[in-house]
Design a protein around this nucleic acid. Structure first.
Lengths: 223, 223
DNA sequence: GAGCCAACCAACGTATACGTTATTGTACAC
DNA sequence: GTGTACAATAACGTATACGTTGGTTGGCTC
């Protein structure tokens, strides 16, 4: 048949399609037939179909018989839904982390992410800031001790990915974001779960409103 | 081939396997080969595989090459994770409903669910109580105006299904549950989002602790 | 020219074929 | 008796085959 791959074709199809969607190589709204995707990825329809099922479950694409897969655009209302969910999940994560307590190494890792964000902001490097911001959020849910929560946040973070990228240069400098993160780390260090939860909740809610507002203001009704 | 079904075989496989898992016809821990499931459902391996991908994504089963599908048991720690998530998602739903406001019909539907729970409890009909309880929770997330949130709650509710059934007869009469629900409906009617959120949050957190405690006390380390 | 109908065809859903590979059991060496 | 190597086999991953069906197009009616 073919040289044995370490990873299954299905897995490769999933990773590759997900990457292309996040990188907007497959733009929102675009449609592709299973056969086209199979050719694009040099495999048969079977693993493509299996990958599409997962991507559809995760809200990245929609599969419509006879019309192929469609990369789902994200509307302002979608963003509202997504940020509502991220806000409460991540706030819970912050609370749990503060409640469990963290090792000095874990605290350092969180602090490093915040410092990296600050350095990136001073250097006016928004890409780098976004990467560090992402690192902070993922670290937080990672430390929550709830694998399901971590996985969910990853999924919804992905759904909001394009909107975050587009608005990155439209938004005011994320100074308060850095301040919020620092405050959350501080609360975690003190084991003050209620404060960690509250600050992070406000932080996320603000971010969501900002994004939805920007999309609306710039008439980006779909991204 | 076969008589044309209105619903796809894949869909039928998904629904049927899910039902059998929830009804413990396929007990936790049990393993089945793709071929066995295909025979069980009178179809080929293809739709079975596609259904298994979704079920695995939703945390109902695990698929391990050469060892077949395994119905995932739910441990006390899993229940902690699940209820942590349900607690914050549903509390957010309650808040959103109170904030949006509800029509008289919607308020009635919520009230009906609560009354049905009270009637069931008086009649000592725990099954009926559980059904009404479920109805109340689903109605709440339905009214939240967040489709993603509704879908998530459904998924995690499913994951906790067996544990809820098992503990139904082990737990004290759910009197406070009814009281909590009534209080949430009351807060929603008044448009008091903060109270709705807080009560429902406490309600869910209590339920989670109760369940985890019961499972532990009765040495039900896996259900 | 607009709307409707029918035939065509392409895309999908599902079954099946088949090579690969992990697992299991057996035989043999120590 | 224990451990290892190898052979047999079964289950899976993927490709392919094929019937079904919904969309599309061309022609016909009004």
């Amino acid at each position: 048949m073919e040289a044995p791959l370490r990873q299954s074709q299905t897995h490769r199809a999933y990773e590759e399609l997900r990457r292309r969607i996040l990188d907007v190589e497959l733009p929102p709204g675009a449609q592709y037939l299973e056969q086209e995707l199979a050719e694009m990825l040099s495999m048969s329809r079977t693993p493509v179909r299996e990958a599409l099922i997962r991507l559809a479950d995760e809200g990245m694409v929609e599969v419509r018989p006879r019309r192929g897969m469609r990369v789902l655009p994200v509307s302002g209302d979608d963003m509202r839904e997504i940020y509502e969910i991220l806000t409460c999940l991540e706030a819970t994560a912050a609370e749990r982390v503060a409640m469990r307590g963290v090792t000095p190494e874990e605290l350092n890792a969180l602090g490093d992410a915040v410092h990296e964000m600050e350095a990136a902001l001073e250097a006016d490097d928004l890409r780098r800031w976004a990467r560090s911001d992402e690192r902070f959020h993922f670290l937080l849910v990672e430390l929550s001790g709830n694998a399901r929560l971590r996985s969910l946040v990853g999924t919804f973070w992905d759904q909001a990915h394009r909107a975050r990228i587009v608005t990155l240069t439209l938004r005011p400098k994320p100074v308060t974001s850095n301040r919020d993160h620092a405050a959350v780390v501080d609360a975690i260090a003190r084991g003050d779960a209620e404060t960690a939860r509250r600050i992070h909740h406000e932080h996320r809610a603000k971010a969501g409103e900002l994004l939805v507002g920007l999309l609306s203001k710039h008439h980006l009704t779909q991204v």
